[in-house]
Design a protein around this nucleic acid. Structure first.
Lengths: 209, 209
DNA sequence: CGTTGCATGTAAGGTGTTACATGATTAC
DNA sequence: GTAATCATGTAACACCTTACATGCAACG
């Protein structure tokens, strides 16, 4: 393809940044000035539910990059005589760029790396007891995430400016509740299957290949 | 942590490989000898539904790595006088290692990078019409993936040795059907919300921040 | 006769992780 | 007093992608 070097088509040209950058800029766009540490915490608790939480070192890198591009500004804040904290804020250019990104950047297909499904797919080779254990873990993990999403949803409720966060929290809650149920359904299916397999094994000597 | 250099704890020591390697080894474990190109094709059509499909160059790299570790073997096959194809097969050591991995490797939490949810989360800044469009695209994408999963499910039906593949295909079908519905529900919610917003705007001059 | 599929691989570079280094403050 | 939290950053490296290079076979 030849999409590499096109001249500025519009007065407002979007810098070519990874989605992670836009996610971090998006967090800044809610208006609260934040340190890298703050971004990481918020990222772990909320972004994590539907996107993913970058490593702390990555967060610092993204913030520096945003500042380089003029999309954010930072101030060194010294409260007492502690080590100064660097506090970031979105800039007007950052707001414009984010809006343009939301409006024009193509939406990449969501990425799912479902390690549990992968194991299940290879289930023929696996120990049924292990599969049971994996699905119980998955069920538990999903329950926790659903609960976490619920807390966030309730936390952002009745503040109209958080309507979209609330909407996504609600979506995430349903998503993880479905995951929770899915794991249990799969558990039941596997118990049927391996029950049959064990019966079959009485009549079979080696695995077919 | 000091988990870097530990001596062999067991006779059967697992090589430390990324999950992608195990996924590729898993594909080989179904018994069919495959070229890198074959692996990529299968990866695109099936693995993609629940894990993700590595780039072709990555597939070749993984296959080489598996062979280095003795988990797979390869043969150069020359059918006519075409360029020879390198055909990979799982080795007995590969089977043992895969089984051990399935049995003992900790299951990393599934990773979701939901680009649509990310955009929605930042929806306050976005153009409602654009959000509509994104959700319609997402609905369509999910419908296609559900259909794809269904075809695979039907294809593996009634072959008992494919029971787990069928199970995962069924799970994937439900997953994407849920995604499909989710997108439509969100669409409806957004129409309510932005309907209200537009009405509100008659009484408001600037966005709150 | 041009596009798609089959087929393999290298090179360059970006994305993102873990480990390391450092140190103050707060809570138990 | 010791563990957790707050806070910032560097270094090394693994993972993975895109672009490039190459070329035959089959289909339309």
């Amino acid at each position: 393809m030849t999409a590499s070097k096109r001249p500025a088509r519009q007065a407002r040209e979007l810098p070519d940044l990874p989605i992670t950058s836009w996610a971090v800029l998006g967090m800044l766009s809610f208006g609260k000035p934040m340190t890298g540490y703050d971004v990481k915490k918020w990222s772990d608790s909320v972004l994590h539910l539907f996107y993913w939480s970058p490593a702390l070192s990555q967060v610092y890198l993204e913030l520096r990059r945003l500042e380089e591009h003029g999309l954010a500004t930072s101030d060194l804040v010294t409260d007492n005589d502690v080590r100064p904290r660097r506090v970031y804020q979105i800039s007007p250019e950052g707001k414009t760029a984010l809006d343009l990104w939301l409006d024009t950047a193509p939406v990449e297909p969501p990425v799912l790396k479902h390690t549990v499904a992968l194991r299940l797919w290879l289930g023929q080779r696996a120990n049924p007891e292990r599969l049971r254990q994996i699905l119980l873990e998955q069920n538990e993990r999903s329950r926790e995430l659903a609960a976490s999403a619920e807390r966030i949803r309730i936390g952002s409720h009745r503040y109209p400016q958080y309507a979209f966060q609330e909407l996504v929290a609600e979506w995430a809650q349903k998503y993880y509740e479905t995951e929770e149920k899915s794991a249990l359904e799969l558990l039941a299916r596997i118990e049927e299957m391996t029950g049959l397999t064990e019966a079959d094994e009485l009549h079979r000597d080696d695995n077919p290949e």
